[in-house]
Design a protein around this nucleic acid. Structure first.
Lengths: 228, 228, 228, 228
DNA sequence: AATGAATGAGGGTTCATTCAT
DNA sequence: TATGAATGAACCCTCATTCAT
């Protein structure tokens, strides 16, 4: 994080300016001239550091995404259970986006829209992050914490899609409301849907009284408990 | 669908061409000249029908969205229960997108990114559709079908976000797999999370004692204490 | 002036609208569509009556100029002396411009700038008017009312140029002040300069005293007097 | 005149080309592409130097006008008497226009027609030149050289209007004849009209008696009485 | 005769990108 | 290495004008 060479610093300044301006005006409406001015360098200098305007766009998320995924990965080993991990990852996503709204904007509006981004190393990092989430879900299934018939891709899509939707909505429509406050409900809701037997807090009380077998009126999670 | 007047037909042809080309190349990279050529008219003619390039973009979703919402609204009265309605609406969204992949692309990549779109009548229709979904959720809560503490906005965000995420992913990355097959799992998962009796942390106590049918008690987390 | 046929009326309406709009926005910035709208006809109808946009421009001054010149010519016979005639003609110009400011604007800013106008019948009328003025000056010279060495073209240029300058200035810069009030001073000043003997008062007194030849210190008009 | 920096030279070349082409075709019918070609640069380069086409138009007169006014102002101190000054200024105007016929055309046909030009720094210079002329006339009045009831604005309008009229006529109609030859008659005619003593009815008495040089007497109309 | 509809032709302007210094 | 300067390549949009009805 501490930049050494002055070249590196210059590079950083350009990236920062680009982030700000791309986020503000959109990729197409931002101009190199504007970015270079904001970075205190000449247009030509931008091209010393980045091959094209699109290249500059693609480079932006690299650092921030990497840092973010590194942090999440760093915490994973300390967590027990798929649920905790899942909750932590989601928290990580949201925190990253909350702390870097311009980055969030960039990722969601400028980059996920761009086919070329997919061929980019930066995208690889994004994909990796998504992979961590997927693994976590899969782990939960393998561990038996999550229902066997859980579709991990769907669950991931739900998590990422919801986050993206909420951020995009807020960014474009200025919908108020904290995201942080919605992380737990979101995760709870999903866990309820995929938790093996005692889905998020759903508890069924089964009583055996005097040899009578009291069946639950309905529900599917119960049976699982019975089996155990 | 087939408008009689040749003027209307021309208009339709332009819109269709625009949809195709905007979806294919993106708004910025598409040119009026390309669109007009595809529609078999001159550049100037496009401007006879639409004030600006952006206007043309904004007009596209109007018809499809309207038709789609009209259909969904038409079926609503025949459905009983929030769950059925919810499922139907989601089905409606996905069907619309599946049948009009270019339209889906346009909405998700070109329009939801565009701030000006928000001021558009076409956006009003989109918002209306979202409103129907929200109402349905709210209805479920009011009816007691869904948990009282359900956040309808979050649920809606989950539904729409997931759909958007899946479509965007497929469009950009070519992820295979049918969406239709994921509609039910998606809805199930969400319903599991919001259905009244199995809410997270809520406990439904089902007692069958001596053949008596004991109805579930609205609870307050007691069971959890029990658990501990 | 009373229009007979409805076609003639339509034509007039178009011309009036054109005058107004050309004067307001200038020839280049005015559009046929604007004019036709103001005239309550379609674009195509304008072309039924006038071959091109420029044609329409050129036709406008015809009527008004003709009427104006007719009036001046009508009064001429009743006037005695070049001075009265001159004064009347100038008055005529200024009155016409004052009563038809849009016409004045058109003539001075749109038409006198346009080379093609010179080939126009309407221009012939304008030229005729200028001819009347010139003749009047020439008449004054021939009659002996004006100095023999008067350059009638220069005098005319002075009169027309001054009027044009004043109108243009007022139109563009909004300089206030009545033109009417300046007609007399203008004519007086010019008459002073061209009046025959008492040329604008420049008189040299040549004295021959006792055979001495007394040369004028300066001046050129003197010799002429001698000659006479 | 020859600016050293190659940038300045390029700028000059563009201005010169613009002057030529604007004068030849008029502002509206001239194209940037034509101008850039004539200047040996690309279209885009023109926009490096000038913000818009109109800007380019407005910049043209700056240099010439400034130089011209500077010269006139430079000579003023060496001249005695309002008449000499007036004559010199008029001469200056005409000389400038004669030496730069394209510039003359531009000023009279393209710029004086353009409302935006009035807000331009270049127009300020033009106005300044007109101001010098006005001051000179006023000075003459104050000194007693010109009649007290002279309207300086009218006189200026006469001078400028006449010059403009003559040039415009020549430019559009190709009227032959030298302007230079008309400067003196024009000034004479006007001076005749405003000179204090020889105003219509004023007489200057020049006496040479016996080799003595008798200076003209500031008069009051006496001579006329004598004459009569 | 009037016009709704269509368009050919064109022009100003912007910018990403290059390259000599 | 940094940049001032130059430009190629496009594109949106306007409008006078035409013509079938």
């Amino acid at each position: 994080m501490a930049r050494s060479s002055p070249k590196e610093q210059r590079r950083e300044r350009i990236i920062e300016s680009a982030l700000k301006i791309f986020a503000e005006k959109g990729f197409q409406d931002a101009t190199i001239s504007e970015i270079s001015k904001a970075a205190g360098v000449s247009d030509a200098t931008v091209y010393e550091y980045f091959k094209t305007k699109e290249d500059l766009l693609f480079v932006i998320p690299e650092e921030i995404t990497e840092r973010s995924i590194r942090e999440i990965r760093g915490v994973m080993p300390f967590l027990r259970g798929a649920e905790s991990k899942l909750r932590t990852i989601v928290q990580g996503y949201v925190t990253t986006y909350e702390n870097n709204p311009e980055y969030a904007n960039l990722i969601m509006l400028q980059l996920k829209t761009n086919r070329n981004f997919l061929k980019t190393p930066a995208f690889e990092v994004v994909r990796e992050a998504a992979q961590v989430l997927l693994s976590c879900i899969q782990e939960g299934i393998d561990e038996g914490a999550f229902r066997k018939d859980t579709d991990p891709y769907l669950v991931r899509a739900m998590i990422l899609g919801t986050i993206e939707h909420l951020f995009t909505r807020r960014h474009l429509q200025g919908t108020p409301g904290s995201f942080m406050d919605r992380v737990d409900p979101l995760v709870d809701l999903i866990l309820d849907g995929i938790r093996a037997r005692k889905k998020s807090g759903d508890v069924s009380l089964h009583l055996h009284i005097a040899g009578q077998d009291i069946l639950p009126v309905e529900d599917t999670g119960i049976t699982e408990e019975k089996k155990t």
